[in-house]
């Protein structure tokens, strides 16, 4: 690692509007990856993942994305930005290629995954998803406390029962006993939760539609926007809660 430490990010924060190409001085759009005139790669800019793929900036970031178009664009940009292509280029172009292709990969990884994409958009919208953030996880682990996750009210009864079963199963394991009825109960609970996960996913997609409609309607109220946003926050928290339950059950069943 010693040989690779001091790559410094060029201080090339793009200003509004057009820049000039570093190589041929032609005008270049602020977020363009290449000069339209000479085709040379342009300095790295601090842009979000939607902008990187030219999928619109704030406040018009849509959540419904054509995944096959995204993949095509990812491949197209990879062919042009990957460090392999710049193996014989100047040091600064190599650096920009490295930075831009890492942005490209990070952006693609986030946008192609429905949950990661929604979370990312919500973060851009200023929401801190406490329950799911790694900060919250660390804080909980460090203090040894259970992560403060609000049990979704409609799940209260189910979760209560599940915890009893999990405890019973663990006690049985310690005593070296085996009660197949608990395992089968848990198996059923697992299937129920997995079904809820699937339902949460389709519910999320309806919110995407609502979101995309709200942001595309001229003159739509800020309140409407916040309403959809908060619905998604609630759903993601609920989903992450259920996901943890599935994980707990899987662990208990030794999967």
């Amino acid at each position: 690692m010693a040989t690779e430490t001091n790559i410094r990010t060029g201080n090339s924060v793009a200003t509004e509007g057009a820049n000039l190409c570093w190589s041929c001085n032609a005008a270049v759009a602020a977020n363009a990856h290449f000069c339209p005139n000479c085709g040379k790669v342009q300095p790295t800019t601090q842009i979000d993942y939607f902008e990187f793929f030219n999928l619109g900036g704030a406040p018009t970031r849509k959540l419904n994305i054509d995944l096959s178009a995204l993949e095509r664009e990812f491949y197209r940009l990879s062919r042009k930005l990957h460090p392999d292509v710049f193996a014989r280029a100047s040091a600064k172009e190599q650096l920009w290629s490295l930075e831009k292709s890492s942005q490209l990969n990070d952006a693609y990884r986030t946008l192609k995954d429905p949950i990661a994409r929604t979370q990312y958009l919500l973060e851009l919208e200023g929401v801190k998803l406490e329950e799911q953030s790694s900060d919250a996880t660390h804080a909980a682990r460090t203090s040894g406390e259970q992560k403060k996750q609000v049990v979704p009210p409609e799940l209260l009864e189910e979760v209560f029962e599940l915890n009893m079963q999990l405890q019973e199963l663990r006690m049985n394991k310690e005593m070296g006993e085996d009660d197949p009825s608990i395992a089968s109960d848990l198996q059923q609970a697992k299937h129920r939760f997995e079904k809820m996960m699937t339902e949460a996913m389709s519910e999320l997609k309806t919110y995407w539609d609502e979101w995309d409609a709200v942001i595309c309607t001229p003159g739509s109220s800020e309140a409407g926007r916040i309403k959809v946003r908060d619905k998604m926050v609630g759903l993601l928290n609920r989903r992450s809660y259920i996901r943890n339950l599935v994980r707990d059950v899987n662990e208990a069943l030794g999967n």
Binding site: S102, R141, T142
Partner: peptide
């Protein structure tokens, strides 16, 4: 490494490289 000796994962395995965080 974060407080308490816990590892906060910032780039997950099987991420396409170059990758950054």
């Amino acid at each position: 490494e974060a407080l308490g000796g816990v590892v906060a994962k910032i780039i997950h395995r099987n991420s396409t490289i170059p990758a950054s965080a």
